[in-house]
């Protein structure tokens, strides 16, 4: 990756959350998957109401955001890059954690609470973080690729996750289009193991439902397929390759629907499901 930006918030963000990538990137003259710039808006607006634009090569795919959101814009932009540029992977919306080579995939429906649960599994239960946002499946090996980047926390979940052991949060960004957000650094162990792919063993559709009795229902692979497919960014573009990869991913997996009203209840259910 190549990232250029005049915003000090972006360089601070990279130094906090991507120390290894910065170190290795400065040594070699590597292949560039994404050439990204976070730049200032042009003209008068630059002084009156500073804005940050996300650019991939010469393309400007989003509306600009206020300049103080330059760092979250980078994270959103990079997710978009991974989901939209053809790289040969099936990319879905969902968190992935793993224990040894066995992965637990949590497809994301907005507001379902997957980021909080993902952070709890990572920091409380010691699972290895692959990603809190992107499930990246390699059709060649049918394995999931880690993308251990900061966990993006929204609103109430920021304070919940802040209390977990070993959590280091970045700045809070108020009034973004997703409310207040903050990033939690992935544990060093997850970053170091970023080259270790994992096989999907469990798929859990989490749903946080306030003051409701917890439930855990095993669902069929066919149902899980239909629901995950909806959460895929590039399944149509991946065609038959993507279809087969998703079938292969589910072949070895047990799939569950869980509902809970507290993180503890969710962790208990995940322990029962995975035996971890």
């Amino acid at each position: 990756m190549r990232i250029r930006s005049p915003f000090s918030a972006v360089s601070a963000h990279l130094e906090t959350f991507y120390p290894d990538a910065l170190a290795s990137g400065r040594r070699a003259e590597p292949f560039t998957d994404f050439d990204i710039r976070i730049i200032r808006g042009a003209g008068l607006r630059r002084w009156l109401r500073p804005q940050a634009h996300f650019m991939l090569d010469h393309i400007d795919p989003f509306l600009p955001l206020p300049a103080d959101q330059a760092a979250p814009l980078f994270e959103w932009g990079l997710n978009w890059c991974l989901a939209s540029r053809p790289l040969g992977y099936l990319v879905m919306h969902g968190a992935v954690v793993a224990s040894d080579g066995d992965a637990l995939v949590m497809p994301g429906f907005p507001g379902a609470g997957k980021s909080t649960l993902c952070a709890a599994l990572t920091f409380v239960e010691g699972w290895r973080l692959l990603s809190d946002e992107l499930t990246i499946l390699d059709p060649e090996s049918d394995k999931l690729l880690p993308n251990p980047r900061p966990i993006s926390l929204k609103n109430e979940s920021i304070d919940i996750v802040a209390r977990f052991p070993g959590v280091s949060l970045g700045p809070r960004y108020e009034d973004t289009r997703k409310g207040t957000i903050s990033h939690a650094a992935p544990p060093a162990a997850s970053r170091i193991a970023a080259a270790q792919h994992a096989r999907c063993r469990w798929v859990v559709f989490p749903r946080f439902i306030a003051s409701s009795p917890p439930f855990c229902d095993e669902i069929s692979r066919a149902e899980a397929f239909a629901r995950i497919a909806e959460q895929s960014f590039n399944r149509d573009r991946m065609g038959e390759t993507g279809f087969r990869a998703l079938c292969a991913m589910l072949d070895g997996a047990h799939c569950f629907d869980i509902g809970y009203d507290s993180t503890d209840a969710a962790l208990t259910m995940v322990r029962d499901i995975t035996g971890q």
């Binding site: 292949f31 998957d33 053809p86 149509d236 038959e240 390759t241």
Partner: peptide
């Protein structure tokens, strides 16, 4: 070519086949 280059180019060929279909 390096593996990274092959990954990008093969993915584009795959997208092309999909579009043809």
């Amino acid at each position: 070519m390096p593996a990274d280059a092959a990954r990008h180019l093969d993915a584009i060929l795959q997208l092309g086949r999909r579009q043809t279909q």
